[in-house]
Simulated assay, not measured.
Amino acid sequence: MRITFYGYNTFLIKSGVKKVLIDPGGDFYLFKGWLKSLIPQSQWAAITHILVTHGDPDHYWHVDRIAEKSGAPVICNETMVQEINAKRLLLGPRARGLAFTTEIKNLYTIAHFETLIVDGIEITGIKTVHGPLKIKLGPFSKTLQPGPNKRIGWGSIGFEIRMDKKVIVNLGDTLIHRDEWKTISSPDVLMIPIGGGRVHNTMDEKEALEVAEIIKPRLVIPCHYNCAGLHKKNANPANEKYFYDEVKKLGVDCVILRKNESIEI
């Protein structure tokens, strides 16, 4: 099994003929191709499954385009879908606000703690909650708060993925959930955000370390840190060396993947 990282929380998991894409988002940097696909378009047609952790642009912008190109099923939180005029419509990836406008031919919904099987891959929904996001432009700043009528963090869910005798956990963008995650036990891989120190929209390094100690994975891959955001090259900084060293002290393996780097497990 090969895992490739494309930045933010975009991962491609390849095992045999299966190619599972997590979070088909867009680059969030104004000066480097605003919202261009994080995963190269040359990879789109070969995708076999698409998993979406929530509806923010850096996680979701190209979901319908890749689904159309590949024919892959889309798996997302049940809150990402509404039935309107007898059609099941997905939250519009590029729509403003909570507009359900996009029809996907091959669509599966999942709830927190629910399990479904799609083409031989077993997927369980994990409880996650996106934190507030502070956006600063010069002297002006605005904090976007997740909520029942807010687009930020909409549909937040994590995934426990079981395929080809491996277990991979991806938590998306989330704050810590100590009690709910105690049921997750020793996955082969834990993909975990660590960039919430300055802007607490996700866990920071210390919280992510606490989660690694609770879950006890075999391998940890930190993500969603030192990412570009709007006009900033590094909107959510984290000390990956500190995190790496502290994870190793727990007796757990850790790998730092740069953009477009892969690891085989």
Results as ranks from 00 to 15, higher is better:
62 H>A: 06
62 H>N: 04
63 V>P: 13
64 D>S: 08
64 D>I: 04
65 R>N: 11
66 I>C: 04
66 I>M: 14
67 A>K: 05
67 A>E: 13
67 A>N: 15
68 E>D: 11
68 E>T: 01
68 E>L: 14
68 E>Y: 12
69 K>D: 09
70 S>M: 04
72 A>S: 04
72 A>G: 01
73 P>W: 15
73 P>D: 06
73 P>L: 00
73 P>S: 00
74 V>M: 06
74 V>T: 01
74 V>K: 08
75 I>V: 06
75 I>D: 11
76 C>L: 06
76 C>M: 14
77 N>R: 06
78 E>N: 13
78 E>V: 12
78 E>Q: 12
78 E>L: 02
79 T>C: 00
79 T>E: 12
79 T>Y: 15
80 M>V: 00
80 M>A: 03
80 M>C: 03
80 M>K: 06
82 Q>V: 00
82 Q>T: 01
83 E>A: 04
83 E>W: 07
83 E>L: 03
83 E>F: 09
84 I>R: 06
84 I>M: 14
84 I>T: 08
85 N>W: 06
86 A>I: 03
86 A>H: 12
86 A>W: 11
87 K>M: 09
87 K>A: 09
87 K>W: 11
87 K>V: 07
88 R>K: 13
88 R>P: 14
88 R>Q: 15
89 L>R: 13
89 L>D: 11
90 L>M: 08
91 L>S: 12
91 L>A: 01
91 L>P: 08
92 G>L: 00
92 G>Y: 04
93 P>H: 09
93 P>I: 00
93 P>K: 02
93 P>D: 08
94 R>C: 09
95 A>F: 10
95 A>Q: 11
96 R>M: 04
97 G>Y: 04
97 G>Q: 10
97 G>I: 00
97 G>S: 00
97 G>T: 01
97 G>N: 02
97 G>H: 07
98 L>W: 09
99 A>M: 10
100 F>C: 04
101 T>E: 15
102 T>I: 09
102 T>Y: 11
102 T>V: 02
103 E>P: 01
103 E>I: 01
103 E>S: 04
104 I>P: 07
104 I>A: 02
104 I>L: 15
105 K>N: 12
105 K>H: 08
105 K>Q: 12
105 K>D: 15
106 N>T: 02
106 N>A: 03
107 L>Y: 02
108 Y>V: 05
108 Y>T: 01
108 Y>K: 01
108 Y>I: 04
109 T>V: 02
109 T>K: 02
109 T>P: 13
109 T>A: 01
110 I>C: 08
110 I>M: 04
110 I>N: 00
111 A>D: 11
111 A>G: 12
113 F>I: 00
113 F>L: 10
113 F>H: 14
113 F>N: 10
113 F>T: 10
113 F>P: 14
113 F>R: 09
114 E>Y: 09
114 E>K: 05
114 E>D: 11
115 T>N: 09
116 L>S: 04
116 L>M: 12
116 L>H: 05
117 I>S: 13
